[in-house]
């Protein structure tokens, strides 16, 4: 992974950003908004993943086309008929525009999630929810710890059984039975290990009182500033949305809030600025390091 400076901010900031970006991405079907969202989410994914982004982008392009082109088949409404489907339903321009918006929104959400998966590691999530839901987040931590260990143990069990000739044969039934035996063996092992884990927890004072939550993250000045900027932009976007800045209708007739509406312009600017934050931070950081290096 390339160095992503946005992810070095406080997890609260990262999380707020993604929630807002994803929710906005799902809501705004105005073409100017969804297109800028797709562009900026792509920019961020590329800035984090570099060349590795190519594969994701290709898959998402196919998904985008599929969702946009298939969706209009399910509605016959709209003024401009482009052509008739073989079974006689009209395929309309308005529906296609709507479909494109649907595809764009779907893809932008997936792009934000792709970035989320790179940036929001499990510790960050657990840090945010650890205080709110201490027991559940502890269980989640334990699951995340157990999964790799179970995977390794499962491979060991499969290997051990192979070496005594207990493999599922070619037919499906015996393969399923072999899988079941492995699952049963793993369950025994895992539950017995769990007894030790529980002992180890109690032995280290679990349950003697209210737990505190240790975190390796600290709220710094720059975090507070960025959070302020983010909240301000979010509020502006919401305000504009409330006043009809993103008003859009596709079916039966395309009606969009145009550039003549001040709320649309303001909302658009705030939205773009908001979504550009992580990419901009990455660019600024790169430039700063080049500058520092050149000074040496």
């Amino acid at each position: 992974m390339r160095r992503d400076s946005f992810s070095e901010y406080h997890p609260g900031i990262t999380f707020t950003f993604f929630i807002a970006a994803i929710v906005f991405g799902m809501c705004f079907i105005h073409p100017a908004f969804w297109i800028s969202s797709v562009v900026l989410s792509t920019a961020y994914v590329v800035s984090i993943r570099g060349r590795r982004a190519a594969k994701i982008l290709l898959i998402l392009l196919i998904l985008f086309l599929a969702v946009s082109l298939l969706n209009p088949m399910f509605t016959a409404d709209g003024e401009h008929v482009l052509f008739l489907l073989p079974w006689g339903r009209p395929y309309t321009m308005e529906a296609l525009c709507y479909g494109l918006a649907a595809g764009g929104m779907f893809v932008t959400v997936l792009l934000w999630f792709a970035a989320y998966n790179e940036v929001m590691s499990s510790d960050k999530f657990l840090f945010l929810f650890g205080r709110l839901m201490p027991s559940l987040s502890l269980v989640l931590t334990m699951i995340l710890r157990l999964v790799p260990s179970f995977q390794r143990k499962m491979a060991q069990i499969v290997g051990a059984r192979k070496c005594i000739g207990m493999v599922g044969d070619v037919d499906r039934k015996s393969r399923i039975n072999a899988g079941m035996a492995v699952t049963a063996a793993l369950t025994s092992w895992a539950l017995e290990g769990g007894i030790i884990t529980a002992d180890s927890m109690q032995s280290r004072g679990f349950g003697v009182g209210k737990r505190s939550a240790f975190a390796v993250y600290r709220l710094e000045n720059r975090d507070v500033i960025l959070l302020g900027v983010m909240i301000l932009l979010i509020l502006v976007v919401l305000l504009c949305a409330f006043h009809g800045g993103m008003k859009t209708a596709y079916i039966p007739k395309i009606e969009l809030a145009g550039t003549d509406v001040p709320y649309m312009i303001t909302g658009m600017i705030a939205y773009v600025l908001f979504m550009a934050i992580p990419t901009a931070l990455n660019i600024v950081e790169t430039v700063r390091w080049h500058y520092l290096k050149s000074k040496i």
């Binding site: 510790d123 931590t141 334990m142 290990g193 769990g194 030790i196 180890s200 240790f214 390796v216």
Partner: peptide, 10 residues
């Protein structure tokens, strides 16, 4: 089996 969490620091 004595280890409870997924990170060393935790």
């Amino acid at each position: 089996s004595q280890i409870v969490t997924d990170k060393v620091w935790h």
